[in-house]
Write a protein that binds this DNA or RNA. Structure first.
Lengths: 230, 230
DNA sequence: TTATATTTGTGTAAATCTTACGCATTTTAA
DNA sequence: TTAAAATGCGTAAGATTTACACAAATATAA
Protein backbone atom coordinates (compact mmCIF):
# COMPACT_ATOMS: atom_id res chain seq x y z
CA UNK A 1 0.00 0.00 0.00
CA UNK A 2 2.75 2.45 0.77
CA UNK A 3 4.26 1.59 -2.58
CA UNK A 4 1.47 2.66 -4.85
CA UNK A 5 0.81 6.16 -3.69
CA UNK A 6 0.39 8.25 -6.80
CA UNK A 7 0.07 11.87 -5.79
CA UNK A 8 1.96 14.75 -7.41
CA UNK A 9 3.32 17.60 -5.38
CA UNK A 10 3.16 21.10 -6.81
CA UNK A 11 3.80 24.60 -5.56
CA UNK A 12 1.98 27.77 -6.57
CA UNK A 13 3.02 31.37 -6.08
CA UNK A 14 0.91 34.39 -5.33
CA UNK A 15 3.03 37.44 -6.01
CA UNK A 16 1.51 40.70 -4.89
CA UNK A 17 2.59 44.09 -6.14
CA UNK A 18 1.28 47.58 -5.47
CA UNK A 19 1.36 50.81 -7.39
CA UNK A 20 -0.79 53.93 -7.65
CA UNK A 21 -3.41 52.81 -5.22
CA UNK A 22 -3.77 49.47 -6.95
CA UNK A 23 -2.97 46.00 -5.73
CA UNK A 24 -1.71 43.65 -8.43
CA UNK A 25 -1.15 39.91 -8.77
CA UNK A 26 1.19 38.22 -11.21
CA UNK A 27 -0.44 35.59 -13.42
CA UNK A 28 0.64 33.42 -16.33
CA UNK A 29 -1.26 32.08 -19.24
CA UNK A 30 -1.47 28.33 -19.35
CA UNK A 31 -0.06 26.96 -22.59
CA UNK A 32 -0.84 23.30 -22.37
CA UNK A 33 -3.24 20.87 -20.83
CA UNK A 34 -6.92 20.90 -20.24
CA UNK A 35 -6.76 24.34 -18.68
CA UNK A 36 -5.19 25.81 -21.80
CA UNK A 37 -5.73 29.52 -22.31
CA UNK A 38 -6.78 30.05 -18.73
CA UNK A 39 -4.73 32.38 -16.63
CA UNK A 40 -3.17 30.76 -13.59
CA UNK A 41 -0.85 31.33 -10.69
CA UNK A 42 2.77 30.63 -11.52
CA UNK A 43 3.80 27.24 -10.22
CA UNK A 44 4.53 23.65 -11.05
CA UNK A 45 5.76 20.31 -9.83
CA UNK A 46 8.44 20.04 -7.19
CA UNK A 47 11.61 18.21 -8.13
CA UNK A 48 12.72 15.21 -6.13
CA UNK A 49 15.77 16.82 -4.65
CA UNK A 50 14.49 20.34 -4.28
CA UNK A 51 13.06 22.10 -1.25
CA UNK A 52 9.55 23.49 -1.53
CA UNK A 53 10.88 27.03 -1.19
CA UNK A 54 13.36 26.46 -3.99
CA UNK A 55 10.69 24.95 -6.16
CA UNK A 56 8.43 27.94 -5.91
CA UNK A 57 11.28 30.36 -6.59
CA UNK A 58 12.42 28.35 -9.57
CA UNK A 59 8.96 28.05 -11.09
CA UNK A 60 8.32 31.73 -10.67
CA UNK A 61 11.59 32.65 -12.28
CA UNK A 62 11.06 30.22 -15.16
CA UNK A 63 7.55 31.31 -15.87
CA UNK A 64 7.65 35.03 -15.25
CA UNK A 65 11.32 35.97 -14.98
CA UNK A 66 10.57 37.56 -11.64
CA UNK A 67 12.93 36.77 -8.79
CA UNK A 68 11.74 36.82 -5.24
CA UNK A 69 13.83 35.85 -2.28
CA UNK A 70 11.25 35.43 0.38
CA UNK A 71 8.11 33.42 0.12
CA UNK A 72 5.78 32.69 2.94
CA UNK A 73 3.88 29.46 2.99
CA UNK A 74 0.17 30.07 2.72
CA UNK A 75 -1.72 26.81 2.69
CA UNK A 76 -1.68 23.36 1.16
CA UNK A 77 -4.55 22.56 -1.15
CA UNK A 78 -5.27 18.89 -1.32
CA UNK A 79 -8.72 18.18 0.02
CA UNK A 80 -10.36 18.19 -3.37
CA UNK A 81 -9.02 15.02 -4.95
CA UNK A 82 -9.94 16.32 -8.37
CA UNK A 83 -8.61 19.82 -8.14
CA UNK A 84 -6.46 18.96 -11.12
CA UNK A 85 -8.49 16.95 -13.62
CA UNK A 86 -5.46 15.08 -14.93
CA UNK A 87 -4.02 13.62 -11.74
CA UNK A 88 -4.19 13.81 -8.02
CA UNK A 89 -2.07 16.86 -7.32
CA UNK A 90 -1.66 18.64 -4.06
CA UNK A 91 -0.32 22.13 -4.14
CA UNK A 92 1.54 24.04 -1.50
CA UNK A 93 0.72 27.70 -2.06
CA UNK A 94 3.13 30.49 -1.20
CA UNK A 95 2.90 34.22 -1.36
CA UNK A 96 5.38 37.04 -1.75
CA UNK A 97 5.33 40.81 -1.79
CA UNK A 98 7.44 42.73 -4.26
CA UNK A 99 8.24 46.39 -4.61
CA UNK A 100 7.00 48.47 -7.55
CA UNK A 101 10.23 48.21 -9.54
CA UNK A 102 9.28 44.62 -10.35
CA UNK A 103 5.93 45.56 -11.78
CA UNK A 104 7.49 46.52 -15.09
CA UNK A 105 9.25 43.25 -15.78
CA UNK A 106 6.63 41.82 -18.05
CA UNK A 107 7.01 40.62 -21.61
CA UNK A 108 10.48 39.32 -20.91
CA UNK A 109 12.36 36.38 -22.34
CA UNK A 110 10.16 33.33 -21.95
CA UNK A 111 7.83 35.25 -19.71
CA UNK A 112 5.76 36.63 -22.53
CA UNK A 113 2.71 35.06 -21.06
CA UNK A 114 3.12 36.63 -17.66
CA UNK A 115 1.07 39.66 -16.72
CA UNK A 116 0.17 41.75 -13.72
CA UNK A 117 -3.56 41.90 -13.00
CA UNK A 118 -5.38 44.36 -10.82
CA UNK A 119 -6.81 42.50 -7.87
CA UNK A 120 -10.36 43.35 -8.76
CA UNK A 121 -9.97 42.43 -12.41
CA UNK A 122 -8.95 38.84 -11.96
CA UNK A 123 -10.46 36.52 -14.56
CA UNK A 124 -11.60 32.95 -14.00
CA UNK A 125 -8.39 31.09 -13.30
CA UNK A 126 -7.26 27.54 -13.97
CA UNK A 127 -7.89 24.80 -11.40
CA UNK A 128 -8.76 26.12 -7.94
CA UNK A 129 -6.53 29.13 -8.34
CA UNK A 130 -9.25 31.66 -7.65
CA UNK A 131 -9.76 29.98 -4.33
CA UNK A 132 -6.03 29.97 -3.58
CA UNK A 133 -5.81 33.63 -4.46
CA UNK A 134 -8.75 34.42 -2.24
CA UNK A 135 -7.01 32.81 0.68
CA UNK A 136 -3.83 34.68 -0.13
CA UNK A 137 -5.64 37.97 -0.18
CA UNK A 138 -7.27 37.25 3.16
CA UNK A 139 -3.88 36.49 4.62
CA UNK A 140 -2.40 39.65 3.17
CA UNK A 141 -5.18 41.74 4.68
CA UNK A 142 -4.83 40.11 8.05
CA UNK A 143 -1.05 40.38 8.15
CA UNK A 144 -1.10 43.99 7.13
CA UNK A 145 -2.72 44.80 10.44
CA UNK A 146 -0.36 42.88 12.71
CA UNK A 147 2.96 42.80 10.89
CA UNK A 148 4.78 45.62 9.16
CA UNK A 149 4.61 44.04 5.72
CA UNK A 150 3.09 46.97 3.90
CA UNK A 151 6.58 48.38 3.48
CA UNK A 152 7.57 45.41 1.34
CA UNK A 153 5.12 46.62 -1.30
CA UNK A 154 6.58 50.12 -1.42
CA UNK A 155 9.87 51.48 -2.73
CA UNK A 156 12.65 51.81 -0.13
CA UNK A 157 11.78 55.46 0.31
CA UNK A 158 8.16 56.38 0.22
CA UNK A 159 5.70 59.10 1.07
CA UNK A 160 3.53 58.83 4.10
CA UNK A 161 0.56 59.32 1.84
CA UNK A 162 1.59 56.28 -0.16
CA UNK A 163 1.68 54.15 2.95
CA UNK A 164 -1.68 55.55 3.91
CA UNK A 165 -3.17 54.77 0.52
CA UNK A 166 -1.74 51.30 0.55
CA UNK A 167 -3.60 50.55 3.76
CA UNK A 168 -6.82 52.11 2.50
CA UNK A 169 -6.64 50.29 -0.79
CA UNK A 170 -5.82 46.83 0.43
CA UNK A 171 -8.05 46.89 3.47
CA UNK A 172 -10.79 48.75 1.63
CA UNK A 173 -11.28 51.12 4.52
CA UNK A 174 -11.09 54.81 5.21
CA UNK A 175 -8.44 55.87 7.63
CA UNK A 176 -7.93 58.97 9.68
CA UNK A 177 -4.80 60.54 8.26
CA UNK A 178 -3.56 62.27 11.39
CA UNK A 179 -4.08 59.34 13.70
CA UNK A 180 -2.55 56.90 11.26
CA UNK A 181 0.58 58.98 10.95
CA UNK A 182 0.83 59.52 14.67
CA UNK A 183 0.45 55.82 15.32
CA UNK A 184 3.00 54.66 12.79
CA UNK A 185 5.52 57.27 13.90
CA UNK A 186 4.98 56.38 17.55
CA UNK A 187 6.35 52.89 16.85
CA UNK A 188 9.69 54.38 15.92
CA UNK A 189 10.23 51.96 13.05
CA UNK A 190 9.75 54.47 10.27
CA UNK A 191 12.15 57.33 9.86
CA UNK A 192 12.25 60.54 7.93
CA UNK A 193 14.93 60.82 5.30
CA UNK A 194 16.54 64.01 4.10
CA UNK A 195 14.94 63.60 0.72
CA UNK A 196 11.86 65.15 -0.70
CA UNK A 197 9.53 63.51 -3.14
CA UNK A 198 9.75 64.49 -6.77
CA UNK A 199 6.01 64.94 -6.95
CA UNK A 200 5.26 68.43 -8.24
CA UNK A 201 1.83 69.03 -6.92
CA UNK A 202 1.00 70.37 -3.50
CA UNK A 203 3.39 70.93 -0.64
CA UNK A 204 6.62 68.98 -1.01
CA UNK A 205 6.73 65.94 1.23
CA UNK A 206 9.57 64.22 3.01
CA UNK A 207 10.34 60.66 2.03
CA UNK A 208 10.28 58.03 4.76
CA UNK A 209 12.08 54.75 5.21
CA UNK A 210 11.21 51.60 7.13
CA UNK A 211 13.97 50.66 9.54
CA UNK A 212 14.10 46.86 9.49
CA UNK A 213 16.81 46.62 12.09
CA UNK A 214 14.95 48.82 14.52
CA UNK A 215 11.83 46.78 14.02
CA UNK A 216 13.65 43.52 14.61
CA UNK A 217 15.20 44.86 17.78
CA UNK A 218 11.90 46.07 19.11
CA UNK A 219 10.24 42.84 18.10
CA UNK A 220 12.80 40.87 20.11
CA UNK A 221 11.92 42.98 23.11
CA UNK A 222 8.29 42.02 22.73
CA UNK A 223 6.97 44.88 20.65
CA UNK A 224 3.97 44.03 18.51
CA UNK A 225 3.13 46.02 15.44
CA UNK A 226 -0.57 46.61 15.18
CA UNK A 227 -2.80 48.90 13.18
CA UNK A 228 -6.50 48.89 13.78
CA UNK A 229 -9.28 50.86 12.19
CA UNK A 230 -12.88 51.32 13.08
CA UNK B 1 10.19 15.01 -16.01
CA UNK B 2 6.69 15.30 -14.75
CA UNK B 3 6.52 11.54 -14.91
CA UNK B 4 9.32 10.69 -12.58
CA UNK B 5 8.43 12.74 -9.58
CA UNK B 6 8.92 10.50 -6.60
CA UNK B 7 7.72 12.29 -3.51
CA UNK B 8 5.46 10.78 -0.87
CA UNK B 9 2.72 12.78 0.78
CA UNK B 10 2.05 12.25 4.45
CA UNK B 11 -0.04 13.91 7.13
CA UNK B 12 0.79 14.26 10.81
CA UNK B 13 -1.49 15.12 13.69
CA UNK B 14 -0.78 17.17 16.77
CA UNK B 15 -3.55 16.48 19.24
CA UNK B 16 -3.58 18.71 22.28
CA UNK B 17 -5.37 17.92 25.50
CA UNK B 18 -5.52 19.73 28.82
CA UNK B 19 -6.16 18.64 32.36
CA UNK B 20 -5.21 19.82 35.84
CA UNK B 21 -3.09 22.69 34.71
CA UNK B 22 -1.19 20.50 32.29
CA UNK B 23 -1.07 20.59 28.53
CA UNK B 24 -0.73 17.20 26.87
CA UNK B 25 0.10 15.88 23.42
CA UNK B 26 -0.81 12.51 22.02
CA UNK B 27 2.12 10.46 20.70
CA UNK B 28 2.60 6.98 19.33
CA UNK B 29 5.52 4.65 19.47
CA UNK B 30 7.01 3.82 16.10
CA UNK B 31 7.01 0.12 15.47
CA UNK B 32 8.89 -0.18 12.23
CA UNK B 33 11.50 1.55 10.16
CA UNK B 34 14.68 3.32 10.98
CA UNK B 35 12.96 5.42 13.61
CA UNK B 36 11.84 2.34 15.49
CA UNK B 37 11.21 2.83 19.18
CA UNK B 38 11.08 6.58 18.86
CA UNK B 39 7.92 8.29 19.84
CA UNK B 40 6.27 10.22 17.03
CA UNK B 41 3.23 12.22 16.05
CA UNK B 42 0.40 10.06 14.74
CA UNK B 43 0.29 10.20 10.97
CA UNK B 44 1.05 8.43 7.74
CA UNK B 45 0.76 8.43 4.00
CA UNK B 46 -2.26 9.87 2.26
CA UNK B 47 -4.27 7.55 0.07
CA UNK B 48 -4.77 8.39 -3.58
CA UNK B 49 -8.47 9.04 -3.34
CA UNK B 50 -8.59 10.56 0.10
CA UNK B 51 -8.67 14.20 1.14
CA UNK B 52 -5.89 15.42 3.40
CA UNK B 53 -8.38 16.02 6.20
CA UNK B 54 -9.72 12.49 5.90
CA UNK B 55 -6.22 11.09 5.87
CA UNK B 56 -5.26 12.72 9.12
CA UNK B 57 -8.48 11.65 10.80
CA UNK B 58 -8.05 8.09 9.59
CA UNK B 59 -4.44 7.82 10.68
CA UNK B 60 -5.21 9.21 14.09
CA UNK B 61 -8.07 6.81 14.57
CA UNK B 62 -6.02 3.84 13.37
CA UNK B 63 -3.02 4.60 15.50
CA UNK B 64 -4.55 5.93 18.67
CA UNK B 65 -8.23 5.13 18.51
CA UNK B 66 -8.97 8.79 19.17
CA UNK B 67 -11.58 10.43 16.97
CA UNK B 68 -11.43 14.10 16.24
CA UNK B 69 -13.76 15.90 13.92
CA UNK B 70 -11.96 19.13 13.36
CA UNK B 71 -8.37 19.51 12.38
CA UNK B 72 -6.75 22.74 11.43
CA UNK B 73 -3.95 22.74 8.94
CA UNK B 74 -0.73 23.90 10.54
CA UNK B 75 2.11 23.82 8.05
CA UNK B 76 3.62 21.68 5.34
CA UNK B 77 7.08 20.37 6.04
CA UNK B 78 9.03 19.69 2.91
CA UNK B 79 12.04 21.93 2.74
CA UNK B 80 14.38 19.38 4.20
CA UNK B 81 14.66 16.81 1.45
CA UNK B 82 15.93 14.23 3.91
CA UNK B 83 13.49 14.75 6.73
CA UNK B 84 12.59 11.10 6.29
CA UNK B 85 15.76 9.08 5.70
CA UNK B 86 13.97 6.45 3.63
CA UNK B 87 12.35 8.58 0.95
CA UNK B 88 11.50 12.10 0.05
CA UNK B 89 8.35 12.67 2.06
CA UNK B 90 6.54 15.90 2.61
CA UNK B 91 4.16 16.11 5.49
CA UNK B 92 1.15 18.28 5.96
CA UNK B 93 0.81 18.82 9.68
CA UNK B 94 -2.55 19.36 11.37
CA UNK B 95 -3.55 20.09 14.90
CA UNK B 96 -6.63 19.50 16.97
CA UNK B 97 -7.86 20.27 20.46
CA UNK B 98 -9.77 17.70 22.46
CA UNK B 99 -11.63 17.89 25.72
CA UNK B 100 -10.45 16.08 28.85
CA UNK B 101 -12.78 13.11 28.40
CA UNK B 102 -10.51 11.91 25.60
CA UNK B 103 -7.41 11.93 27.75
CA UNK B 104 -8.31 8.58 29.25
CA UNK B 105 -8.68 6.63 26.05
CA UNK B 106 -5.24 5.14 26.05
CA UNK B 107 -4.29 1.49 25.95
CA UNK B 108 -7.18 0.67 23.66
CA UNK B 109 -7.48 -1.88 20.88
CA UNK B 110 -4.53 -1.45 18.56
CA UNK B 111 -3.63 1.83 20.20
CA UNK B 112 -1.53 0.23 22.89
CA UNK B 113 1.40 2.29 21.76
CA UNK B 114 -0.36 5.60 22.06
CA UNK B 115 0.23 7.80 25.05
CA UNK B 116 -0.42 11.31 26.29
CA UNK B 117 2.73 13.26 27.15
CA UNK B 118 2.97 16.40 29.18
CA UNK B 119 4.13 19.18 26.95
CA UNK B 120 7.31 19.75 28.90
CA UNK B 121 8.19 16.09 29.08
CA UNK B 122 8.35 15.38 25.39
CA UNK B 123 11.17 13.00 24.46
CA UNK B 124 13.26 13.17 21.30
CA UNK B 125 10.80 12.32 18.56
CA UNK B 126 11.16 10.59 15.22
CA UNK B 127 11.99 12.58 12.08
CA UNK B 128 11.44 16.33 12.45
CA UNK B 129 8.50 15.84 14.75
CA UNK B 130 9.94 17.93 17.57
CA UNK B 131 10.09 20.80 15.14
CA UNK B 132 6.55 20.20 13.95
CA UNK B 133 5.33 20.09 17.51
CA UNK B 134 7.16 23.31 18.31
CA UNK B 135 5.38 25.04 15.49
CA UNK B 136 2.07 23.61 16.64
CA UNK B 137 2.62 24.88 20.13
CA UNK B 138 3.47 28.34 18.86
CA UNK B 139 0.29 28.37 16.86
CA UNK B 140 -1.75 27.21 19.82
CA UNK B 141 -0.32 29.98 21.98
CA UNK B 142 -0.95 32.60 19.35
CA UNK B 143 -4.48 31.47 18.61
CA UNK B 144 -5.39 31.32 22.25
CA UNK B 145 -5.05 35.09 22.36
CA UNK B 146 -7.13 35.95 19.33
CA UNK B 147 -9.63 33.13 18.96
CA UNK B 148 -11.79 31.53 21.64
CA UNK B 149 -10.22 28.10 21.28
CA UNK B 150 -9.35 27.56 24.92
CA UNK B 151 -12.87 26.32 25.47
CA UNK B 152 -12.22 23.38 23.16
CA UNK B 153 -9.75 22.05 25.70
CA UNK B 154 -12.21 22.20 28.59
CA UNK B 155 -15.31 20.18 29.41
CA UNK B 156 -18.60 21.70 28.23
CA UNK B 157 -19.15 23.18 31.66
CA UNK B 158 -16.15 24.53 33.43
CA UNK B 159 -15.05 26.75 36.28
CA UNK B 160 -13.76 30.19 35.64
CA UNK B 161 -10.66 29.24 37.54
CA UNK B 162 -10.05 26.39 35.11
CA UNK B 163 -10.22 28.75 32.17
CA UNK B 164 -7.88 31.06 33.98
CA UNK B 165 -5.39 28.29 34.70
CA UNK B 166 -5.54 27.09 31.15
CA UNK B 167 -4.44 30.49 29.91
CA UNK B 168 -1.71 30.76 32.55
CA UNK B 169 -0.43 27.28 31.86
CA UNK B 170 -0.32 27.39 28.10
CA UNK B 171 0.91 30.94 27.78
CA UNK B 172 3.24 30.57 30.75
CA UNK B 173 2.16 33.89 32.16
CA UNK B 174 0.57 35.26 35.26
CA UNK B 175 -2.81 36.82 34.81
CA UNK B 176 -4.81 39.22 36.88
CA UNK B 177 -7.81 37.22 37.94
CA UNK B 178 -10.32 40.06 38.27
CA UNK B 179 -9.45 41.69 35.00
CA UNK B 180 -9.43 38.39 33.13
CA UNK B 181 -12.87 37.51 34.35
CA UNK B 182 -14.24 40.96 33.64
CA UNK B 183 -12.82 40.87 30.14
CA UNK B 184 -14.10 37.43 29.23
CA UNK B 185 -17.53 38.18 30.66
CA UNK B 186 -17.69 41.50 28.83
CA UNK B 187 -17.62 39.63 25.51
CA UNK B 188 -20.91 37.96 26.31
CA UNK B 189 -19.84 34.63 24.87
CA UNK B 190 -19.54 32.79 28.16
CA UNK B 191 -22.57 32.22 30.29
CA UNK B 192 -23.22 31.12 33.81
CA UNK B 193 -25.07 27.83 34.23
CA UNK B 194 -27.29 26.89 37.13
CA UNK B 195 -24.83 24.24 38.21
CA UNK B 196 -22.18 24.33 40.84
CA UNK B 197 -18.90 22.54 40.67
CA UNK B 198 -18.50 19.34 42.65
CA UNK B 199 -15.20 20.54 44.05
CA UNK B 200 -15.37 20.35 47.83
CA UNK B 201 -12.85 22.91 48.82
CA UNK B 202 -13.37 26.63 49.21
CA UNK B 203 -16.42 28.61 48.23
CA UNK B 204 -18.65 26.73 45.80
CA UNK B 205 -18.31 28.03 42.25
CA UNK B 206 -20.76 28.33 39.41
CA UNK B 207 -20.01 26.40 36.24
CA UNK B 208 -19.80 28.34 32.99
CA UNK B 209 -20.44 27.42 29.40
CA UNK B 210 -19.10 28.79 26.13
CA UNK B 211 -21.91 29.88 23.84
CA UNK B 212 -20.76 28.96 20.34
CA UNK B 213 -23.79 30.37 18.64
CA UNK B 214 -23.46 33.70 20.38
CA UNK B 215 -19.82 33.86 19.43
CA UNK B 216 -20.53 33.07 15.80
CA UNK B 217 -23.22 35.74 15.67
CA UNK B 218 -20.97 38.34 17.19
CA UNK B 219 -18.14 37.28 14.93
CA UNK B 220 -20.32 37.82 11.87
CA UNK B 221 -20.98 41.32 13.09
CA UNK B 222 -17.28 41.99 13.23
CA UNK B 223 -16.50 41.16 16.83
CA UNK B 224 -12.94 40.04 17.49
CA UNK B 225 -12.04 37.94 20.46
CA UNK B 226 -8.81 39.08 22.03
CA UNK B 227 -7.04 38.50 25.30
CA UNK B 228 -3.84 40.30 26.04
CA UNK B 229 -1.56 40.21 29.02
CA UNK B 230 1.30 42.32 30.11
C1' DT C 1 -19.26 25.05 67.73
C1' DT C 2 -15.86 27.65 66.46
C1' DA C 3 -11.83 28.87 64.03
C1' DT C 4 -9.06 28.23 60.04
C1' DA C 5 -8.03 27.33 55.40
C1' DT C 6 -9.47 27.65 50.77
C1' DT C 7 -11.42 29.42 46.79
C1' DT C 8 -14.94 32.53 44.67
C1' DG C 9 -16.66 36.90 43.54
C1' DT C 10 -16.74 41.82 43.11
C1' DG C 11 -15.57 47.82 42.43
C1' DT C 12 -13.04 51.77 41.61
C1' DA C 13 -9.55 55.17 40.59
C1' DA C 14 -5.49 56.26 37.78
C1' DA C 15 -3.16 55.77 33.68
C1' DT C 16 -2.97 54.86 28.96
C1' DC C 17 -4.62 54.60 24.44
C1' DT C 18 -7.95 55.80 20.89
C1' DT C 19 -10.84 58.75 18.52
C1' DA C 20 -12.57 62.87 16.44
C1' DC C 21 -11.72 66.95 14.50
C1' DG C 22 -9.68 71.88 11.44
C1' DC C 23 -6.38 74.90 10.01
C1' DA C 24 -1.93 76.86 8.60
C1' DT C 25 2.01 75.77 5.43
C1' DT C 26 4.41 75.04 1.12
C1' DT C 27 4.58 74.40 -3.30
C1' DT C 28 2.92 74.52 -8.66
C1' DA C 29 0.19 76.23 -12.25
C1' DA C 30 -3.04 79.35 -14.01
C1' DT D 1 -1.23 87.21 -7.30
C1' DT D 2 -4.34 83.88 -6.67
C1' DA D 3 -6.24 79.26 -6.59
C1' DA D 4 -5.52 74.44 -6.09
C1' DA D 5 -3.35 70.59 -4.04
C1' DA D 6 -1.17 68.05 -0.70
C1' DT D 7 1.56 68.05 3.79
C1' DG D 8 2.10 68.59 8.64
C1' DC D 9 0.60 69.36 13.15
C1' DG D 10 -2.22 69.42 18.55
C1' DT D 11 -5.72 68.76 21.73
C1' DA D 12 -9.78 67.43 24.28
C1' DA D 13 -13.23 63.74 25.11
C1' DG D 14 -14.06 59.11 25.41
C1' DA D 15 -12.85 54.32 25.95
C1' DT D 16 -9.99 50.78 27.54
C1' DT D 17 -6.67 48.85 30.45
C1' DT D 18 -4.37 48.36 34.53
C1' DA D 19 -3.52 47.97 39.39
C1' DC D 20 -5.12 46.76 43.54
C1' DA D 21 -7.85 44.33 48.46
C1' DC D 22 -11.42 42.49 50.92
C1' DA D 23 -15.85 40.09 51.95
C1' DA D 24 -18.54 35.72 51.17
C1' DA D 25 -19.26 30.72 51.10
C1' DT D 26 -18.02 26.39 52.06
C1' DA D 27 -15.16 22.11 54.30
C1' DT D 28 -12.28 20.59 57.69
C1' DA D 29 -9.85 20.33 61.82
C1' DA D 30 -9.47 21.67 66.44
Amino acid sequence: MTENQNIRVAVDAIVFGYQNSQLYVLLIQQKFGTQESYWALPGGLVKNDESLQDAVKRELKEETNVEVNYFEQLFTFGDDVNRDPRNRVISIAYYALVDPSKLKVQADTDAEHAQWFKINEIPALAFDHNQILKKGLERLKAKLTYEPIGFDLLPKEFLFSELENLYCTILEKEIERRNFRKKILSFGIVEETENYSPVKTGRPAKLFRFNHKKYNDLHEEGFHFEIKFA
